[in-house]
């Protein structure tokens, strides 16, 4: 995966670059809007991290130019503007995700991976699915039944949606903010570790009594639904 970072603050771009390189991804950095647009138009990138306030050309303009030329490269906007309206404007202009500064690298990484995966998936793939599986856990979207190792598990509405989201994105880091946005569908600031409480409830139901826990806490980032238990146990 090749990522383009359009960011004028060298500390931030250096930080992102370092993190992505550690995750063995290649990346290029553009320090202003015009240069960034030129590089983006070459079409060789799988994802673009775009700062909103840039010299030469504003981040939003870069995005509009890109989208007007039918470039479908997924774009994540990085901005110090945290207002809901700014977010909405950003997403309406064709951005795929929006992250406010300051951010944890894990949050950026999780969102980038999800964004690229989503843009790569064809619509048919996601529609046909009726059952989701992760290791020995299965979730049926039609009957809304959940089983683990042939044991039936009773879940309530929100728990079901939480599990569904985690399972759809198995083996990927899902942050708390992502869960708030996608599972609860409220744009809100919980002021409490409420997501952790819900995850621990879900764990009680699907992990308790089993040798291998499937919901894994990723420190400083969020959670990950495990799928390949054996691989992990070996490593």
């Amino acid at each position: 995966m090749k990522v383009l970072i359009i960011e004028d603050d060298p500390t931030v771009s250096h930080f992102i670059r370092k993190g992505l390189t550690e995750a063995s991804l290649t990346c290029d950095v553009a320090a202003d809007g015009k240069r960034g647009l030129q590089m983006a138009e070459s079409g060789q990138y799988d994802a673009i991290v775009l700062d909103r306030m840039l010299p030469e050309m504003d981040g939003m303009q870069v995005l509009q130019h890109l989208r007007s030329k039918r470039s479908e490269t997924p774009v994540l906007i990085l901005s110090a503007k945290s207002k809901v309206e700014d977010k909405v404007v950003g997403l309406r202009s064709g951005a795929d995700d929006y992250l406010t500064k300051p951010f944890a690298f894990e949050e950026l990484m999780a969102r980038l991976e999800l964004m690229v995966q989503r843009s790569a998936a064809t619509p048919e793939q996601s529609n046909v699915e009726v059952t989701l599986t992760a290791a020995d856990l299965t979730l049926n979207l039609l009957t809304r039944k959940v089983h683990r190792a042939n044991q039936s598990i009773e879940l309530q509405g929100r728990e079901f949606r939480l599990l569904e989201y985690l399972m759809r994105n198995k083996e990927r880091v899902i942050t708390r903010t992502m869960l708030l946005e996608k599972v609860w569908d409220y744009n809100f600031d919980p002021q409490t570790n409420i997501i952790d409480v819900h995850i621990s409830r879900l764990r009680q139901k699907i992990d308790k009594g089993f040798a291998v826990p499937l919901i894994e806490t990723v420190r400083g980032a969020g959670y990950r639904m495990r799928d390949n238990i054996e691989d992990r146990m070996l490593s």
Binding site: D9, T11, V12, A80, T100, K101, P102, F103, F105
Partner: peptide
Amino acid sequence: LRTPLTRLRQ
């Protein structure tokens, strides 16, 4: 303030 905070965090 956000940008220096980002740097601090990083």
